[in-house]
Design a protein around this nucleic acid. Sequence first.
DNA 1: AATAACTTGCACAGCACTGTGCAAGTTAGG
DNA 2: CCTAACTTGCACAGTGCTGTGCAAGTTATT
Lengths: 214, 214
Amino acid sequence: MDSVTTTPPPRQPRRDATENREALLAAARAVLNRDPAASLEAIAAAAGLSRRSVYGHFSNRDDLLLELVTSGSRRVASALETVSHSDPLTRLALIASHLWIEVESVRVMAVVALRGPLASHTVGALGPVRREVREAIRAGQANGTMRPDIPVDRLARLVEDTALSVLEESTEHAIGAGEGHRLVMLMTLGAVGLGWRESHEFIAETPELTWSGE
Amino acid sequence: MDSVTTTPPPRQPRRDATENREALLAAARAVLNRDPAASLEAIAAAAGLSRRSVYGHFSNRDDLLLELVTSGSRRVASALETVSHSDPLTRLALIASHLWIEVESVRVMAVVALRGPLASHTVGALGPVRREVREAIRAGQANGTMRPDIPVDRLARLVEDTALSVLEESTEHAIGAGEGHRLVMLMTLGAVGLGWRESHEFIAETPELTWSGE
DNA sequence: AATAACTTGCACAGCACTGTGCAAGTTAGG
DNA sequence: CCTAACTTGCACAGTGCTGTGCAAGTTATT
């Protein structure tokens, strides 16, 4: 009668289950980008599942969003790890450039960051990027390469908004990968004070900024 | 028994009632700017009224929003009526400048324009402004004063976003009226390709763009 | 083929919100 | 001061969402 510790030999999780989990995350990414307040019903449907089975993968609505945000922030963070350049202008352009490569992740975070219990989490996740941007701008102003007529913090926020605008634009009105990459950099450089000719010259003469993707 | 057509001499609407109506609109403006999905309860409370009495002034939630948007668009439209200048760059800067004066109206429309049945109405209301912006940019590019490296429509949308970013920034982080006015113009000019020095020069040598408010 | 893993549909409780009716109050205006 | 105009609180129906339990099905794995 010692059926107590009969190790119930647990099977492996089924393959299709994890696939569905991924599908849910992907669907959430897509749907929430269109409507940040979309219901689980809508998300599940987009993933080809029923609302009920969402709860087989995530305990909560917030749990799902949390996963979206944290996985997104991980991607962005790791994408920005490689960014480090002595020239602040190049550094800023590189940040913009690398963000472009992670558009989806960034947008998800921006979209979900609106209100609710996730807000704190998202700003936390985006924090490091923010700091890098601010720092690059500070250096750039000291450097004389960026406009000194707007206080660092304010300019940093405006630059962030600029980049986000381009990322949004890029998903709402189709744009080639290389084109988008060029556009983020152009507008970011413009925001810190460069004229459009200057921006082009700068990009042209800075090999690190060349698009080498897709 | 002919008490039928005894004209029931109707009184005038009470003064405080119309005041409350205004208070509701003002509260809605303020509250919805923080949370676009705020409840009528929240709005009414901010106006010092009960949720129930909202329905004494507006038949619907949408009715309230509709009024916000249309009154806002009327203000913006009339503010932009005076804008007309042969030089496209000046014209664009003037649009930005005049928008600044109507910040609140613009922001309300932008915020409420998200989804729902109001979307069509708001884009309609903002339509004329959009067209003016687009036209100024087209002329500016032909002119050689604005960057030709981005197609008109795309650039127009980016300029709109830039202006909105500044307006948002201005309400989220306090800024003087004159300062804000200067900032919208600077960033708008930057978006169409001017370097920061150029922008300053341009504003300095264009008397129409001088701040004469408050 | 056996079985655990997974999905589904349905039913239900709960919550937050809108919109309405009504009776009782308060207040501005004639 | 009288009365209509306005506000309020409460109750109630309706809607759309979340989260859960459960029984019945389907499917991957061994």
